[in-house]
Design a protein around this nucleic acid. Structure first.
Lengths: 224, 224
DNA sequence: CGCATAGTTCGTTCCTCATCGAAGCATTCT
DNA sequence: AGAATGCTTCGATGAGGAACGAACTATGCG
């Protein structure tokens, strides 16, 4: 018999369709209420509540109570990373859809992945960064190139700040089946996109909608 | 309702204790037969067989038939990475054991993690490589330093070969709760340790046992 | 204070799925 | 060929747990 961490316990928490849907929804990065998650998962409120307490007990979620609202969010980047890893496997071994990826066109173009940008736009951005050697890639592994600091400084992003998470990480995009940029740098870039109002988040969805001028500005900075 | 890859399907495969034990056993990197896995998981042969066909159907395993033996192995690094990610979450949120980690002392010192070395020995090695700036670390992210190529060339390891996997990856050690070296480099180093006969693999276990002279040689090369 | 909204707890129903023994196939050894 | 080993399939059993309605608690609003 095996020793070690109880991986079956964690995996079985993710292994229920309702809970998996909830966790996927929370990959949008924003905390949601029990009712929103119930809707998202397609179950009744009592059922959702039961699932949420299990996820809480399992340590996968955090809870922020504000008045009569209770906002549930992912417990942290490690949990988000695990969901990403599972999603990656599911995407690559899963029953191949005829049209892979999200059905919603907007979702395929650009969406939020926990705290960074995903979708065609994000994949194109990473491709271009690699092409310009601002980011160096050895297959799945990516890292900052020598010119990264000055390049990002020019657009107001400090890559030298040393946070607790990797600055620069690859994350497999399940709609495009290629990598996009995650890590702190990915998060900061998404922040910038939203702060500059180049794009807005679709309500109750992970989709990110670029305005026509915003798309131009984004392309000028990241795809030029 | 959500779209996208069926993550619940994959997670629920890992979510059964018997299957989780099998997958953990296969993290040892060597393919095992159905009977070995049944023993490992603590279930009867028919039960194990049923689980194995589910894991096969889910695409998590590969099968190599040799005569009347059928060897099951993890389907690839992506699957191994997913198991690692789940193990990491389970280790950090799980019920903290009074004495964390493997019960077996040898396992805590050094063991195999899919294809690379884990345990105290491995954590010490990575620490030392970082200290000598052969490998650079930004918290969880690690990468090769400028002197890496020449340093590893001196001990007969070519880090410039570009394989399909990241050369250098961090992997959270669940017994020590700190990172050790994974990726191709980690795999090559483990190969070297075994090829030089510095250590041998314990039969039917992930434990790696260093011989006294082997330990000295290893420490001279990697911990000096 | 009552009424509405947000959420949890309780109890019941129901169904999936893990489990094992027995029997069936396949491969190798003698 | 016959026996032994390795593994899978079948069928029956049983337990865990997902689901919901109804009742209960808590917060906010007039």
């Amino acid at each position: 018999m095996r020793e070690g961490p109880d991986i079956a316990r964690i995996a079985s928490l993710v292994g229920d369709p309702a809970r998996a849907n909830m966790l996927s929804a929370l990959m949008g990065g924003t905390a949601l209420t029990a009712s929103e998650l119930a809707l998202e998962a397609g179950v009744s409120l009592p059922t959702a509540s039961s699932h949420l307490s299990k996820l809480m007990e399992g340590g996968l979620l955090t809870l922020a109570s504000q008045g009569r609202h209770r906002y549930y969010g992912l417990a942290g980047p490690q949990v988000a990373g695990m969901i990403e890893a599972i999603t990656g496997v599911a995407a690559s071994v899963g029953p191949q859809r005829v049209r892979p990826g999200p059905r919603d066109a907007a979702m395929r173009v650009a969406r939020v992945c926990y705290d960074h940008l995903a979708g065609e736009q994000a994949v194109a951005m990473l491709d271009r960064l690699v092409e310009r050697e601002i980011i160096l890639r050895d297959d799945q592994e990516i890292r900052l190139g020598p010119s990264a600091a000055s390049h990002f400084a020019a657009i107001g992003i400090d890559v030298d700040a040393k946070p607790r998470r990797p600055v620069c990480r690859a994350c497999l995009d399940w709609s495009v089946r290629r990598s996009h940029l995650a890590g702190t740098l990915g998060a900061v870039i998404l922040d910038k996109i939203l702060a500059e109002k180049w794009a807005r988040r679709e309500k109750d969805s992970r989709a990110v909608i670029f305005s026509p001028p915003g798309k131009q500005a984004f392309e000028k900075v990241f795809l030029a």
